[in-house]
């Protein structure tokens, strides 16, 4: 049985903001991550604030500039099967389709997928780890097969989302509403590295709700994909992966978004690789060079050095698939 909590179902975003600003309040979108965390005692909730009554935050609609607005409560299944997203922003459609299981995609939301807590077994387990306010990251001396090879510092989680990396690659923005009003920011700026604060994954302050994701209009000659490598063919988190959002003009890469998943505490953008690709024709030689550069500076731990060649291979393969 779940621990006891107060249940609140606001009918407007401003009521949600108020309810979420209360001490010990936790947001419930699809609830799939929240209920698991509560059951496992990862954290408590004095109140669960269900966003399911906020119909304005559901659905996908075009924006004036040719982009797309996706309400934060749109399910992953809806994102995955939306023909417009598959055509204009394929990396996102593929990321949403690769996440979790069919049932979880029917229930889990895009906003929830970005705001979910990490899957590190020390964080989820009965360990007073650094992310839960304890002294140490147990992964450093312990079992770190699924942990970070980039960006770890005091905590070595990997970000579990399959939609975050595509959204960063696509230069998407999110709208956040809070007690002080609304603000928009690039998805990339939503996430927090452990070196900045190892007890949180997003910049969301108490009372702040992620309300929508905005996709910019597709660039001319846009191509993209999300490549996820996992232990099983389905229903597993990424061991490593890459989201690509390229535009190609006159046979040359005009712009590039390259963001790794499953290897760092946040979606891991590799600007050096993006820079390398721009202005060049994408061929086998360039793909190999880019893949090499993508894993430069990796700092594997005792049990996860396999991730370096894995991600390198995934980047090379993904680039070749778009060549």
């Amino acid at each position: 049985m779940l621990p006891s909590f107060r249940y609140v179902r606001p009918r407007t975003v401003s009521e949600a903001v108020k309810a979420l600003a209360a001490e010990g309040a936790r947001a419930h979108a699809g609830g799939t991550d929240l209920l698991g965390c509560l059951r496992d005692g990862v954290f408590d909730a004095k109140s669960v604030v269900s966003l399911s009554g906020l119909d304005d935050l559901k659905g996908i609609s075009p924006t004036k500039d040719g982009g797309l607005k996706i309400g934060a409560l749109t399910t992953l299944a809806e994102v995955a099967r939306h023909p417009g997203i598959a055509k204009g922003w394929p990396a996102l459609a593929q990321g949403a389709a690769a996440a979790a299981s069919p049932q979880l995609r029917n229930q889990g939301t895009l906003g929830g997928n970005l705001c979910q807590r990490p899957r590190c077994w020390y964080f989820r387990g009965d360990f007073d780890c650094a992310r839960k306010g304890g002294e140490i990251c147990y992964a450093v001396e312990g079992e770190n097969t699924y942990h970070a090879i980039f960006g770890g510092s005091g905590c070595f989680i990997v970000h579990p989302s399959d939609t975050a990396s595509p959204l960063v690659a696509l230069r998407a923005t999110v709208k956040v509403v809070g007690p002080k009003g609304a603000r928009s920011l690039p998805v990339e700026k939503l996430f927090v590295l452990p070196a900045v604060d190892h007890t949180r994954e997003t910049i969301l302050a108490p009372g702040e709700v992620l309300t929508e994701v905005l996709l910019p209009p597709p660039l001319e000659g846009a191509k993209g994909l999300y490549r996820k490598v996992r232990s099983r063919g389905a229903w597993d988190f990424a061991l490593g992966g890459v989201a690509l959002a390229l535009s190609v003009k006159d046979g040359k890469v005009a712009s590039a978004g390259v963001v790794l998943s499953g290897v760092a505490p946040t979606p891991w953008r590799v600007p050096e690789v993006e820079k390398l690709l721009v202005g060049k024709a994408l061929d086998a030689k360039l793909a190999a060079e880019a893949a090499e550069l993508a894993v430069k500076g990796a700092e594997p731990m005792s049990g996860n050095d396999y991730k370096v060649p894995l991600v390198k291979g995934a980047v090379e393969e993904a680039l070749l698939a778009l060549a």
Partner: peptide, 13 residues
């Protein structure tokens, strides 16, 4: 009409 996990669904939902 859509498949979901009832263990991760609050009855109130």
């Amino acid at each position: 009409g859509v498949a979901r996990y009832s263990c991760l669904t609050l009855a109130l939902e």
